[in-house]
Design a protein around this nucleic acid. Structure first.
Length: 912
RNA sequence: GGGCGCAUGGCGCAGUUGGUUAGCGCGCCACGUUGACAUCGUGGAGGUCAUAGGUUCGAACCCUAUUGCGCCCACCA
C-alpha cells in the first residue's frame, strides 16, 4: 500500500497527470457505433484573450459535464478552438507595429496580414495553454480556428448561400461607426453607456420671404422666455456638430405650436443653408422644444425621416470623425473640437439659447470604448427576419431549452425585435467578403445612380476570383475590400468545426450537440445566431440545452475587468491554491444562473476541502491491508452482517450519488458540489471514519472504507480531476486512470431509511453527551460515565450494538443502557424517542446551574409544544391539511409532551 | 421608456412543486495539539427571511404594491 505525502502538493502532480491523460488519448472522441454521443459546444475564446475568472467558471462547468458524461460511457467530444477576433486582433497587432514605428496603411494589406498571422502563431494559443492548466479535457487534436481552411470555406459557403437566397444585401444605411477602429459595427457591438451629456438649445432663423409671414411663438407658456423669440425656431440637440449636415426641421403634425410653420423655410445657422420643415409623428412633441433638426447622414431617426420625406443626406464627417469639406470653416476639426467651435460661433451670433444637463445613453465600441458615431455608409447586411422566425419557433416549442428558463423571454423578445445584421467590417483581418466587382459594369451603373442596390449588374459573388465578368466579359475585376464580422464565422461553429459544408462522419454523429454553456453577455452575439445558422444551414438545432451561468464580479459587485484592476487572476489562484481548489470553490459558490461575487478568500473553501480529502485518504491508506479489501462486493454483502454505521454510510453514499446525478443533469452544479462536500466531510470523515477507528482492522471496516473512498473519488473526479487521480492511483485499482472509470452505479437497495434514522439517534446521543460536557466544562481528557434510560428493547438493542462507537466518540467511561430513574446529583438531558441521558457528576453538579440549564431546555420545548398543539386544535388544519402532515404533527406533539414531562421530572428531583 | 435579477444571523450566500425546530461557508466565543487533517476537531452565541397588504388551515417560498441595489434592452433628438 502506498503512503501518501503528508501534505498534498497540487503543483507537483497536476502537470504530470494532465500530460498522462493527453498522451493516453483519453480526451479524444471518434464517431462510434457503440456509444451514444455527447458533445458540448465550447464558446471559442478570442485569440487575444487571456484566461479570466469568467473563462475559469465557464470551462470548469463544461469540464464537469464532459468528465461526468465520459464516465457514464458516452462518446464525449469537447471541441476546443479560438476565433480570430477581427477588430481586437487587428488593434493589438497595429499597436505592436506602431511601437516599431510601422503603420498598417504603409505596410499594405498583404504585409500587414503576414504580421497578424505571425502574431497569431506566437500568442494566439495562450488561452489554450491556460485551459489545459484548468484541467479541461478537450479533444485538442481537433482544435479549430475560425480562419482555418475548413472554417473559412464554411464562411464563404454560408455567405454565398444566403446571398443566393436573397438574405444578404448591400445598401446605404446608418450604421454604428467606430472612428478609432474606422469600421462599421453591428448593433450588438455598440455597447450603450449612460453618459452625462448636454442638451443644447439653438435658434434656427425663419426665412422671411413669404408675405403672410408671422413670427412663430410658443403658445404654451414656459418659464423660459428665451424660447419665445420671434422669427426663430429653437431646436434641441446633444450633438451640435451634426448641424452642419442638417437638411430639414421636423415637428410633430399634432403639435399646435408649430402648425403655422407649414411651407416655411428655415435658415441653418453658420452655413446659411435653406432647410425645409417636415411634419412627422416620429417627432416627440414633449422632448426639448418639440422641434427636431434633421441630419439624415448622422442619425438613425433622421435617416428614416430623410428616406420618408425624400431628403438628400449630407455627410459632414470623415471616417475618423473629423469634419469634412461639407463642414465649411470647420473642415478638419475633430468632432468634439468642432462642437465647441460651433457653439462659440452660435454664441457670437446670439443664436445659442441655453444648455441643460442631459443624461442619455450613447453607443461605444465594444473593443476600444470609443464613442460610436452613427454614419451613413454602404455596408453588407444579413436579413434577419426570415432567419429569426424559425429560431423563435424552436425555442417556443421547447426543442431548445434555456437554463434558467428566464432567459427564454430575453431571447424571444430580442429575436422578435432584431434588425438586419451589418456584417461588413472595414478592416483587413478576417474573412474577406466573397464579392467581386466588375469595374466596367459598375462604371455604367454610376451613370444611372438610381438603380444602385436593386440592380446586381457588376456584382459577382464567388468563392474564387472570377476570370471575367459574366455580364460584360470584362476582366477588370476587383474584390470587395471589406471583411466579414467575426461572428459571421462564429455562428457556424457548431457545425463548421465538425466538417461542414462537407458531409463528415463527425457531423453526422455529433450534430446536434448536447449542451451549450455560456455567459449571459453572449446570448445575442452568439447563441441566437448559432441557432439561426444551425436551422438555416443544417436544417436542425445546434444544441438542445443552453446553460447560462452568471457573470463573475468582484466582492463589491462590479464586473471584473482588466481596466478596473479588480481582476482575480485564475492562474494566480491555481498557483496559490491548486486547480482543484479553484474549480471546486468557484463551482460551489455559483448558484444556478446567479452572478458570482468573488474574493480571494473564497478559494480557501476548495483548498480546505482538497486538504480534507487528502488527509482522509491518507488515513485510510495507512490502515488498509491489500489482502483484506480484495473481495467480491456481492459475496461480501451476503456473507457479512453489517453494523449500523456501515449500512448508514452506504445508504448516505448512494443517496448522495443519486442527488449529484440529478443535480448535474439539471445544471445545478453548486448543489452537486455541496452534496458531495457535505457527504464526504461531515458524514464520511466526521462520523464514519471516526467510528471505524476502534475496529479499523475488521474486515467490514477495511472493505467499506476502501469502497466508499474509491467510489467517492470517482464521484468527485469531474469536479476535482487532479487530486482524485493522484489518490486513486495510490489505492488498489484496476484500469489506467480514474478519468475513464465508470461513474458509480446507483444501488437503490442500499439506501435505507431505517439505517439513516437509527444513525441519527446515535449521532444525537453522542452530540448530547458532548454538549453536556461542554456545558459542565469537563476536561476533554476526562472520561465521564453515562446512564441511558431507553424505553423499549429496540432502542436498547440499537444503543448496545453501538456502545463502543458511542463510548469513543463521546469519551465515555462506563456506559449503561437500560431502564432506570435519574440518579441523584446527575446532569440530565432528554432526547428524541424519550431517551433519558444521565451524567452522574457527584460533587461537580451545581444544582442551581443544572436547574437553570434544564428549565432553559424546558422553555424551548414548551414553546414549541404549545404552538404545535395550537395548530392541532385548528379545525381547518385538521380537515384541510393532508393526512400525513396531520399525523406527523400529532407524532411530533406526542414526542414533545413526553420530553416535556421527563424534563419536568428531572427538574423536580433536582429541587428535592 | 421596456424587461430581468437580487434584498435571509457580522460578512458572503443556499433554500425548485407552500408543511415539523430556516441551512451552509467565513467570521465570532469557549475548549482542545487523543498519531489522518490547526488548510483541523468539539461545543456555542447570533435570524420578527426588505416593507405593507392579500391568497391559504399553514408563506422565506404564491399574488399585488412600495423601497433600496444591480443588470440587460431601446431610433431619450
Amino acid at each position: 500500500m502506498i503512503e501518501l505525502e503528508k501534505v498534498y502538493n497540487p503543483k507537483a502532480v497536476e502537470d504530470r497527470w494532465y500530460k498522462f491523460w493527453e498522451e493516453k488519448g483519453f480526451f479524444h472522441a471518434e464517431p462510434s457505433g457503440s456509444k451514444k454521443p455527447y458533445c458540448v459546444v465550447i464558446p471559442p475564446p478570442n485569440i487575444t484573450g487571456i484566461l479570466h475568472m469568467g473563462h475559469a467558471l465557464n470551462n470548469t462547468i463544461q469540464d464537469i459535464l464532459i468528465r461526468f458524461k465520459r464516465m457514464q460511457n458516452f462518446e464525449t467530444l469537447w471541441m476546443p478552438g479560438t476565433d480570430h477576433a477581427g477588430i481586437a486582433t487587428q488593434n493589438v497587432v497595429e499597436r505592436k507595429l506602431l511601437e516599431k514605428g510601422a503603420r498598417r496603411q504603409e505596410l499594405g494589406r498583404e504585409k500587414f496580414l503576414e504580421e497578424v498571422w505571425k502574431w497569431r502563431d506566437e500568442y494566439g494559443s495562450t488561452i489554450i495553454k491556460q485551459l489545459k492548466k484548468l484541467g479541461c479535457s478537450c479533444d485538442w487534436a481537433r482544435t479549430r480556428f475560425t480562419m482555418d481552411e475548413g472554417l473559412s470555406e464554411a464562411v464563404l459557403e454560408a455567405f454565398i448561400r444566403l446571398y443566393d437566397k436573397g438574405l444578404i444585401y448591400k445598401g446605404d444605411y446608418i450604421i454604428n461607426w467606430c472612428p478609432r477602429c474606422q469600421t462599421a459595427l453591428s448593433d450588438e457591438e455598440a455597447q450603450h453607456k449612460d453618459i452625462e451629456g448636454m442638451l443644447y438649445y439653438i435658434k434656427y432663423p425663419i426665412k422671411k420671404v413669404t408675405s403672410n409671414q408671422k413670427p412663430v411663438t410658443r403658445k404654451k407658456k414656459t418659464q423660459d422666455s428665451s424660447l419665445k423669440t420671434q422669427g426663430y425656431i429653437v431646436v434641441a440637440t446633444t450633438r451640435p456638430e451634426t448641424m452642419l449636415g442638417d437638411v430639414a426641421i421636423a415637428v410633430n403634425p399634432k403639435d399646435k405650436r408649430y402648425k403655422n410653420l407649414k411651407g416655411e423655410t428655415i435658415i441653418l445657422p453658420i452655413l446659411n443653408r435653406e432647410l425645409v420643415v417636415i411634419f412627422d409623428p416620429l417627432v416627440d412633441a414633449k422632448f426639448g422644444t418639440g422641434a427636431l433638426k434633421v441630419t439624415p447622414a448622422h442619425d438613425p431617426v433622421d435617416f428614416r425621416l430623410g428616406l420618408k420625406h425624400k431628403l438628400k443626406p449630407i455627410n459632414v464627417m470623415n471616417p475618423d470623425a473629423t469634419i469634412n469639406e461639407n463642414g465649411g470653416e470647420f473642415n478638419g476639426m475633430g468632432r468634439f473640437e468642432a462642437r465647441e467651435a460651433i457653439l462659440e460661433d452660435l454664441k457670437g451670433s446670439k443664436l445659442f439659447v441655453k444648455l441643460e444637463p442631459h443624461r442619455h445613453s450613447v453607443g461605444h465600441c465594444y473593443r476600444c470604448h470609443t464613442m460610436i458615431e452613427p454614419r451613413l455608409s454602404a455596408q453588407w447586411f444579413v436579413r434577419m427576419k426570415p432567419l429569426a422566425k424559425r429560431a423563435i419557433e424552436v425555442v417556443e416549442k421547447g426543442r431548445i431549452k434555456f437554463f434558467p428558463t428566464r432567459w427564454t423571454k430575453v431571447y424571444l423578445s430580442w429575436m422578435e425585435n432584431m434588425r438586419d445584421w451589418c456584417v461588413s467590417r472595414q478592416i483587413w483581418w478576417g474573412h474577406r467578403i466573397p464579392v467581386y466587382y466588375c469595374k466596367n459594369c459598375l462604371g455604367q451603373r454610376t451613370e444611372n445612380r438610381k438603380q444602385k442596390t436593386e440592380d446586381n449588374a457588376g456584382i459577382i459573388v464567388s468563392k474564387i476570383k472570377p476570370e471575367k465578368c459574366p455580364d460584360c466579359g470584362g476582366t477588370d475585376i476587383e474584390q470587395d475590400p471589406d471583411v466579414l464580422d467575426t461572428w459571421f464565422s462564429s455562428w457556424l461553429w457548431p457545425f463548421s468545426t465538425l466538417g461542414w459544408p462537407k458531409d463528415s462522419p463527425e457531423l453526422k454523429y455529433f450534430y446536434p450537440t448536447s449542451s451549450l454553456v455560456t455567459a449571459q453577455e453572449i446570448i445575442f452575439f452568439w447563441v441566437a445566431r448559432m441557432i439561426m445558422a444551425g436551422l438555416e444551414f443544417m436544417k436542425d438545432i445546434p444544441f438542445r440545452g443552453i446553460y447560462i451561468h452568471g457573470t463573475v464580479r468582484d466582492d463589491t459587485g462590479t464586473k471584473m475587468s482588466k481596466s478596473l484592476g479588480n481582476i482575480i487572476d485564475p492562474l494566480d489562484m491555481i498557483e496559490k491554491y491548486g486547480t482543484d481548489a479553484l474549480r471546486f470553490s468557484i463551482i460551489s459558490i455559483t448558484a444556478q444562473g446567479q452572478d458570482v461575487f468573488l474574493s480571494e478568500s473564497k478559494f480557501e473553501r476548495g483548498r480546505n476541502f482538497a486538504n480534507k480529502i487528502w488527509n482522509a485518504s491518507r488515513f485510510i491508506l495507512m490502515n488498509l491491508k491489500a489482502e483484506e479489501i480484495d473481495v467480491d462486493l456481492c459475496a461480501f454483502f451476503k456473507a457479512m452482517k453489517l453494523g449500523l454505521a456501515d449500512r448508514w454510510i452506504l445508504s448516505r453514499f448512494y443517496a448522495t450519488l443519486t442527488a449529484v446525478e440529478k443535480f448535474l443533469e439539471s445544471y445545478r452544479f453548486n448543489d452537486a458540489a455541496g452534496a458531495i462536500y457535505e457527504f464526504f466531510w461531515h458524514e464520511f470523515c466526521d462520523w464514519y471514519i471516526e467510528m471505524s477507528k476502534a475496529e479499523i482492522q475488521s474486515k467490514a471496516k477495511q472493505v467499506i472504507l476502501y469502497k466508499i473512498l474509491e467510489k467517492s473519488l470517482r464521484m468527485l473526479h469531474p469536479f476535482m480531476p487532479f487530486i482524485t487521480e493522484e489518490i486513486w492511483q495510490g489505492i488498489p485499482h484496476e484500469g489506467d486512470s480514474i478519468m475513464i472509470q465508470k461513474w458509480p452505479h446507483i444501488q437503490g437497495q442500499m439506501i435505507s431509511r431505517e439505517a439513516e434514522s437509527d444513525m441519527a439517534a446515535v449521532i444525537e446521543l453522542v452530540s448530547a453527551v458532548r454538549n453536556m460536557r461542554a456545558d459542565w466544562n469537563i476536561d476533554p481528557a476526562m472520561q465521564v460515565d453515562i446512564l441511558i434510560n431507553a424505553p423499549g428493547k429496540g432502542l436498547q438493542g440499537l444503543l448496545a450494538e453501538n456502545l463502543t462507537s458511542i463510548k469513543n466518540l463521546a469519551r465515555v467511561g462506563n456506559l449503561t443502557v437500560g431502564e432506570m430513574d435519574k440518579p441523584a446529583g446527575s446532569a440530565a438531558v432528554v432526547l428524541a424517542n424519550a431517551i433519558d441521558l444521565f451524567m452522574p457528576l457527584e460533587g461537580l453538579i451545581d444544582a442551581r446551574k443544572e436547574a437553570s440549564r434544564l428549565s432553559g431546555q424546558l422553555k424551548k420545548i414548551g414553546q414549541e409544544a404549545s404552538s404545535i398543539s395550537g395548530r392541532l386544535k385548528d379545525k381547518n388544519f385538521l380537515t384541510k391539511a393532508p393526512m400525513e402532515v396531520v399525523e406527523k404533527t400529532r407524532a411530533k406533539l406526542k414526542e414533545l409532551k413526553e420530553r416535556q414531562g421527563k424534563l419536568e421530572d428531572n427538574l423536580k428531583t433536582l429541587k428535592l
